[in-house]
Design a protein around this nucleic acid. Structure first.
Lengths: 125, 125
DNA sequence: TGACATCGTTTACACTCGTAATAGATTACG
DNA sequence: CGTAATCTATTACGAGTGTAAACGATGTCA
């Protein structure tokens, strides 16, 4: 895959199922897991296929059915997506991004404390 | 305009020019500002047009040319995009997003101090 | 006044995405 | 064995995107 897999937002939901799954997952399990999403089984198959073509999932035959598993880690995808977002919207500057989300979000006291701890851990460049 | 304007990433760069501009801007000024982006003038015109159709920019005739100005604030767009990103990638939870970017980014001591100050200002839900 | 330079508008095209129907293969049941 | 059920693969189609050429109106300079 020349570029980053380029996982779209519908595809992301499919990936989430695979990432959450303990091991290789059949298409119907994915369909079940996404029963609330309002997609038909065919739609989900299509997305699995596209993800496979993009190299984001692997599929291995198991009798008549296929077993799907993620080929890219959630971490890696989050990093890729995150970078593309910060580049697009914040010109690549993470600090303003953080400022924006801190201001915009309603955080609990606990979460604020957690973040403070994280910041303490950062050395600072 | 049923939904959010839905500004694509190329379009975002055009919007940035308009947002940065002091006042109404001609298409050629936009083209000049984006001379480094590797687009032809026609491409940029197309994007201005699409943005106008989406309601993201206004254009007002000024003699033979048009003057473009943003119809939506940068703030609003950042909020919209930010929300869509946090929904897609972090299931809507801002705290993990913040954690991710704090960990992933190289922040300067100053930036860390700034963030700490921001956190101090947050009451906590 | 006529040719040229400017602008904006229209049209184009290949590719991705969301969404899904349909066709093809394989299995399982009667 | 034959027919129904179950899977995957192929095909489809409209909207959005990136990228741009072509067309048309208008103003400008010689």
């Amino acid at each position: 895959m020349a570029k980053h897999p380029g996982i779209s937002s519908a595809e992301w939901q499919v990936m989430e199922v695979l990432w959450r799954a303990a091991g290789p997952t059949t298409a119907s399990e994915v369909v079940d897991a996404l029963s609330g999403a309002g997609w038909t089984a065919a739609t989900i198959k299509t997305m699995l296929n596209r993800l496979a073509r993009k190299g984001a999932v692997r599929h291995r035959a198991d009798g008549k059915r296929y077993l799907y598993s993620p080929a890219v880690s959630r971490e890696a995808c989050v990093r890729t997506e995150g970078r593309s977002f910060v580049d697009r919207v914040f010109g690549g500057a993470v600090a303003p991004l953080l400022a924006h989300f801190v201001e915009d979000a309603k955080l609990s006291k606990d979460e604020i404390a957690q973040l403070r701890k994280l910041l303490d851990g950062k050395k600072g460049r």
